[in-house]
Design a protein around this nucleic acid. Structure first.
Lengths: 194, 194
DNA sequence: CAGCTGACAGAGTTTGAAATCTGTCAGTCC
DNA sequence: GGACTGACAGATTTCAAACTCTGTCAGCTG
């Protein structure tokens, strides 16, 4: 008997097939072939192609949000953590977009079809930011605010620099200066008076 | 002789054809037919279909930025003008998207193909915001900043609520609360201390 | 003779028949 | 008997031939 077929092995194969063929050309039969099984077997682990697609998307988004959690929870001043967190998110997205545009385009297409999964991802990110803001308020670095709303506001306000919908603008020459301007605006917005 | 053929009459006809057929189905021959002329005549006024498309896009974007100029230049406190300006821009976009989604989708598609025209439009909007910020700094409402950068930062930070790339999120229930959170963040960011 | 027409070449799009894919399930195999 | 196969129906996609569109230009027309 060859190795047991698991959801994890299917997901890995699906990622590989997506990387090689792109979203439009990747089929369930391709994934099954890559694993040396019939496509019927894939359907014992995922109820539909859409479910498999969503699972791949979730895996990718967890790969983005997981490293950020460590940054959000580091033992450093809230301002510094906030900046590091944004830099990390922005670098992760922009580097992927620059270094493998085709694969990045595949992931953008995936996320467009998995709005629910993306919604949870965005909530996760906003929650991490809310945590940083809460710490900053507690330490007196930031003025008191509704931390959940402020976390979401920070994510929204910086969207141009990490939201894939704006990927086409990331090559603009002024993009770094634009981020610095937004950063200084929102940082003064958070900062405690005096 | 029927009325003289002008660029303006062609533009009006092109808008009409786009409204009726959408971007994908609208042809130069359709525009010419609507005017009762041969399509060759259209090419005496616009060097290509792309140029005609760009002119229609520019006309539409001017229709957005022109009413905003009056708001930006009104004789009112900068904070109030800024809020009114953003409310007006957001209402203009979101109302169009809600009331005629098909036509709005056509205009989104148009803007995607006219990046240069859109770039000028964005610069115009950022300039109007910079003007409001400059007045606010002069009056002491806002802390001193690089007004051009701050104008662009305000536009970027509020993008989720007016940039058509985010049109799909405008029906979200929390969208108004999210705008209020961003507004309060950027307003504190601008405000002068004390 | 300025403004317009309409035939034309090459590019791009439609169309529908053939091929492929998704999702199911009765049946095989260890 | 649980994991897997593979044949199948219906949905979707591909492909190439037929058609339509863009952009040009020689010539008409008022």
């Amino acid at each position: 008997m060859t190795e047991q077929l698991t959801s994890d092995r299917i997901l890995a194969a699906a990622e590989d097939v997506l990387r090689r063929f792109g979203l439009a050309k990747a089929t369930v039969v391709d994934v099954a072939r890559a694993l040396g099984v019939s496509h019927g077997s894939v359907y014992r682990h995922f109820p539909s192609k859409a479910a498999l697609r969503d699972a791949v998307t979730e895996r990718w988004l967890v790969g983005v949000s997981d490293p950020l959690r460590a940054v959000a929870e580091a033992d450093r001043p809230a301002t510094e953590r906030l900046r590091h967190w944004l830099d990390t998110l922005i670098a992760a997205k922009q580097t992927k977009a620059r270094e493998d545009p085709e694969l990045f385009a595949t992931y953008i297409a995936l996320t467009e079809e998995a709005r629910e999964v993306v919604g949870r991802h965005v909530a996760t990110l906003a929650g991490q930011l809310a945590g940083i803001v809460a710490d900053g308020v507690a330490s007196g670095e930031f003025a008191p605010v509704d931390t959940a709303l402020a976390g979401r506001a920070l994510l929204d306000a910086t969207g141009r620099f990490h939201n894939p919908a704006h990927a086409g603008e990331w090559a603009d020459p002024g993009i770094d200066a634009a981020f610095e301007a937004v950063w200084s605006l929102v940082l003064s917005g958070l900062a405690a008076r005096g």
